[in-house]
Amino acid sequence: MHVHSYEKIWLALGLGLILLLIGSVTYGAVGPGVSMVAADQPTVDPTALDEDDRFAEPRVEQVGENEYEAYVVAFQFGFEPDPIVLPANSTVTFMVTSRDVTHGFEVVGTNANTMVIPGEVSTLTVETGGPTEYGVICNEYCGAAHHGMEGSIEVVPQEEFEESAGGSSDGDGSGGDQ
């Protein structure tokens, strides 16, 4: 088959670009350690979340030194808890599930973003940084009032977080009633 020399050069450049793109994604995974939302949690029954010790009372819980887990339930049309109060400069793993249809969980202006599918638990680990507030939105169409589905995250100083959590790590539901 006759392939013109310019075509060969173009083909080589194209293959180079493809390998570069695959390389950059691979580097993102092994270097900075960006991992994907995956299949690390067993499935749950979306109609029986009140029997699940994580999602019966959606909350933020300390699980290690400076490590927290936030159990979040998405539903038509909101998130619980709301607001999600998190301690500053900590590592937080969100565990998000849905009790009805498919939703999205997007922390606006950041790359914290995942699909929320009924029956599955999405896990997403983030660094909270300094005290600030974020909007949380559902970015997957979920029904007639989808556009009204929002929540918020309040990143507060460590001391304030411990006060609001009432000195206990099991929380009392909403986790944030200042």
């Binding site: 202006g109 559902c138 556009h147 918020s152």
Partner: peptide
């Protein structure tokens, strides 16, 4: 900026882009 697709009203009460 994080503006979602597939929504009738991409403005929210709790934050600004």
């Amino acid at each position: 900026l994080g503006v979602p697709r597939r929504t009738a009203e991409p403005t929210y009460s709790g934050f600004e882009y």
